[in-house]
Write a protein that binds this DNA or RNA. Structure first.
Lengths: 361, 361
DNA sequence: GTGAAAGCGCTAACAA
DNA sequence: TTGTTAGCGCTTTCAC
């Protein structure tokens, strides 16, 4: 029995210069064994209705006996579909992105699609390089969360021209003809600010993100809108525009601290920024929330560690990933008939509770 | 000028049934424009020394003018190398894994290799499915961190038989002929326990992971070794074997608490377990570190948020990723001549300081 | 220095 | 129901 096992594959190997091919069984090998043609095997393995149940059974058994794995490179080349979605993110080791990425993987699997993930590391050149790479891999669609520096939409138009749907996730750039799935940054910021106002804080400050990013803009806009709606004066000295990292939060707080006119409440643009604030506050001997309270966007399950816990705006990470995949898939399936969609998912104000929640396993 | 731009590609498109191929420029298109053969273009674009500098220049300019992207499916099919490493991890949204994954991506990029990442979600069937998928994509090698339930090494032997190097990362399984890169779990656990003993704690307990996993075993072994070395009695009632998640930590603590004989120090097998302990302790009104102190493996930059901060064993996440890639690449390049390596990377005891550190950006 | 021919493993049209 | 023929886009001989 075992002599037969590689009877198709081994002779093939002998004639190969590349030894790595040694044990790569092909349709041809199976066809020989079963005494049918390659095409029959191909059809049988893919569940094509043409082939008789008996033949299918025989073919399948031989296939698994030989340890056959379809060669996707060959399959994709001839069918001209890769059944793959390319993804570009700025970071992986990041609370928010790692959660979204996982959701993307799960959603894709449910739809029998593969994901090819790439990382730009917040670097525009690397981002471009990765997009090119995905194009060369002939992905069927691309989901991207751009870097904080990405401004030029040219490449995205080029991708679209190639017939490859583009879906922006969370971080979008201006431009027509693309899908996008973003969290309701404006609404979240508005709610957070409103909460501070209604809680009676009088000196409310904002540590905002980069002014040129959608997120930085929208969250600042939500902050302003709430302040204006409740007739609170906007104090420019309490508004610091920086980046999205903990270092930015640290620096921002220190800047306020050194000016000797700290607000009594801070709305931080991201969770890392809030962490930086915590760090800085501890360093100068100030207590949160006693001396100064804070709220920020989405800690993504990390809040449990804090004592006392922080209030926050929950971002729909799972939904973002899921929607991005669905949208991209719809676009891929409908191709030209598809009208690009822009989806905004709601955020939620979470006031800290003491109930036990799962963090990460 | 623009009429020429797609003169090669458009007519080709007309004859295609699949519209997605509309604007996919091929070597053939470039060849026509420059009036040379496909082969010349192929060689020129790959920097083959055969072609004259002038021809190369002309070809490259036309290629970029037409917006040419090499088709990796075709390239890989004919060259029988994918220049790709497949990766399987149990989780992405996890402090430890997301850090390692990012390191893997960076290391691969430096070596001009692509990564295809898949997630098993701690599910053995899904893990198998993803491995199959990677094999079908004809990855050149596989880096894998197995699920907590993975016991059967059969598939890994099969992969190896196909001439595809396997490197276990962090979570290894027994078996010969595979590479592995793991953190020094034994040493880390020993050091942690030793620290507790030297700090004067008398009732030292351990919240251990699954007894069937390498990590669970090694960390427990390190704990025991240190206890024995310092002649500390091992109290079975202070040793709880569970899993690696926060829920396990929560449950473990509660079990000890309800038994009314809590230790005064806990060595937790993972950071999530320690988080669960924190959560539980807070719930029953106990203070860490006053009432009971704790140490655990690797919070990966999250420690800054704690107040007071926790001591921990630092895991070499970046190094794990980097080494895994290097090892796999070496194995790929040397093929049969390669002797599989088992690398253990040192861990480090970190006693909390107040200095500002970057968390995540 | 350049190119013609053959083939990678598979699928899609069309015959038989 | 099954097989034949023709590619997919590229690389690899090997001849010129």
């Amino acid at each position: 029995m075992h002599d037969l096992l590689f009877s198709g594959a081994v002779p093939l190997a002998e004639s190969q210069h590349d030894m790595s091919k040694k044990f790569h069984v092909t349709l041809h090998d199976i066809a020989q064994q079963v005494n049918v043609s390659k095409v029959t095997v191909s059809k049988a393995l893919r569940g094509h209705p043409d082939i008789s149940a008996e033949t299918v059974k025989k073919i399948k058994s031989v296939a698994s006996e030989l340890g056959y794995f379809p060669n996707y490179m060959a399959r994709n080349l001839s069918s001209n579909r890769s059944h793959t979605i390319g993804v570009v993110v700025p970071k992986i080791a990041h609370f928010f992105f790692s959660a979204v990425i996982e959701a993307i993987y799960d959603a894709a699997l449910e739809n029998n699609y593969d994901i090819i993930l790439t990382v730009s590391q917040e670097n525009v050149e690397r981002e471009l390089r990765q997009i090119r790479s995905l194009l060369s891999m002939r992905v069927d669609g691309i989901i991207i969360s751009v870097t904080q520096q990405t401004k030029d939409p040219a490449i995205f138009y080029q991708v679209k021209e190639m017939g490859i749907p583009v879906t922006f996730m969370d971080r979008a750039i201006d431009g027509e003809g693309f899908n996008s799935v973003v969290a309701d940054d404006f609404g979240g910021a508005y709610t957070a600010t409103e909460y501070a106002i209604k809680s009676g804080f009088q000196r409310i400050g904002h540590l905002g993100g980069f002014a040129h990013t959608m997120i930085g803009k929208e969250r600042f806009r939500g902050f302003k809108a709430a302040m204006q709606h409740y007739k609170m004066p906007l104090h420019p000295e309490w508004i610091v525009r920086g980046g999205f990292s903990d270092a930015d939060g640290y620096d921002g707080f220190m800047k306020l601290y050194e000016s000797h006119k700290l607000p009594d409440f801070l709305f931080a643009v991201t969770y890392p920024v809030a962490l930086g604030v915590h760090q800085a506050a501890r360093q100068v001997g100030m207590n949160i929330p006693k001396d100064i309270d804070i709220i920020s966007f989405g800690p993504h399950g990390l809040n449990e560690m804090f004592s006392p816990q922080m209030n926050y705006i929950e971002q729909p990470t799972i939904e973002l990933g899921k929607k991005a995949v669905e949208l991209t898939l719809n676009n891929i399936r409908q191709r030209d008939g598809f009208i690009p969609q822009k989806i905004t998912l709601p955020t939620k104000l979470v006031l800290c509770d003491q109930e036990f929640k799962k963090v990460a396993s």
